[in-house]
Design a protein around this nucleic acid. Sequence first.
DNA 1: GTCATATTAGATAGATCGATCTAGCGACGA
DNA 2: TCGTCGCTAGATCGATCTATCTAATATGAC
Lengths: 191, 191
Amino acid sequence: MTSDTRTRLLEASAQLFREQGYAGTGLKQITAAGEAPWGSLYHFFPGGKEQLGAEAVAHSGGRYLKLFDIVFDGADGDFVRSVRDFFQLSVEALERSGWADGCPIATVALETASTSEPLRHACAEVFVSWQEAIARRLRAAGVPDGRAADLATYVLSAFEGALVLSRTAHDTRALKVTGGIVAETVRAALP
Amino acid sequence: MTSDTRTRLLEASAQLFREQGYAGTGLKQITAAGEAPWGSLYHFFPGGKEQLGAEAVAHSGGRYLKLFDIVFDGADGDFVRSVRDFFQLSVEALERSGWADGCPIATVALETASTSEPLRHACAEVFVSWQEAIARRLRAAGVPDGRAADLATYVLSAFEGALVLSRTAHDTRALKVTGGIVAETVRAALP
DNA sequence: GTCATATTAGATAGATCGATCTAGCGACGA
DNA sequence: TCGTCGCTAGATCGATCTATCTAATATGAC
């Protein structure tokens, strides 16, 4: 039986880290947002902020992994449509949240790439899992192994970058434009 | 006559923000790195950390803009080669710096997109200037206006995303793979 | 040389940071 | 009813954060 408080702390962390980064978020703010008692934080996460951060990253990563599958399954094997759908989903998420909900990992990844090895590693693992999920679907669409891995990396790169540009510009154009071109490129690469 | 101390503060800020983000960098650390006296910081930047951050972002942005031109000019009008060169330059910068020198803007952009309007705006302006620089070269290569703008956004998106993945993974593969596919895509789009 | 301005020096304020600590609450089995 | 143990409560520590302040010191014009 997983603790409810623990989950709330994890999800509050994930959301706050996504919006304002790891260093920019205080533990007090996390307990407030998660409506969790201060004493519980170090009970559930004796490793402190770093452990909480690493677990929050993994939590967000897993959640998005499920979302990938939902989008892929909803497109009935049409990989190109999946790509379009995913970019479109982010367009809507950005608009709905007032430009707050970008990539739940990227901010922490960049902040901690040179400052915390455990956090960097957690972020790297999430990115790998996402690329594998995309590559798996590409292989299912008939793309050879190595080429599928490369295309998956390419799609994720373009997606992450477009999210950075769109969120910073407060304008979904980058996501729409990039999504369109990436979808075309992928279509041409399918057998 | 621009103050030397002021420039050192600006460049130290730019480098530290690039490595560890805006919130993760203290003003004391900046004065130490820039070998500048503490009293000078608020003399040159009375607006405090936010002003220093915004100016550092603009400073980095302008520096990269010049680098764009150097790379473009070095490729003798061969835009596809410019793209490859630029991805390759980042590969080398990442390796040389021990995975510290990624995009000088992206970290701050993500951190401050929802927390500081002046900083977000400074980052957005840099990204716009970069896209315009790329688009100008695409037009020079014969690509129509609107299409050039879209392709420029696409190239920058893919580049930024690949930098995030490579820096996080401590592996230049994402930059190499993405750079290759983007170069191919751009080549096919040229007249 | 004199005066005004630009810059440096560094102590200090006041807030907040992550982390630790002890005390106590409350549910549940014996 | 009594313990036990998971969890909560929140004071508190030392460090660090940004920002402000007053003096002292260069610097340059005249």
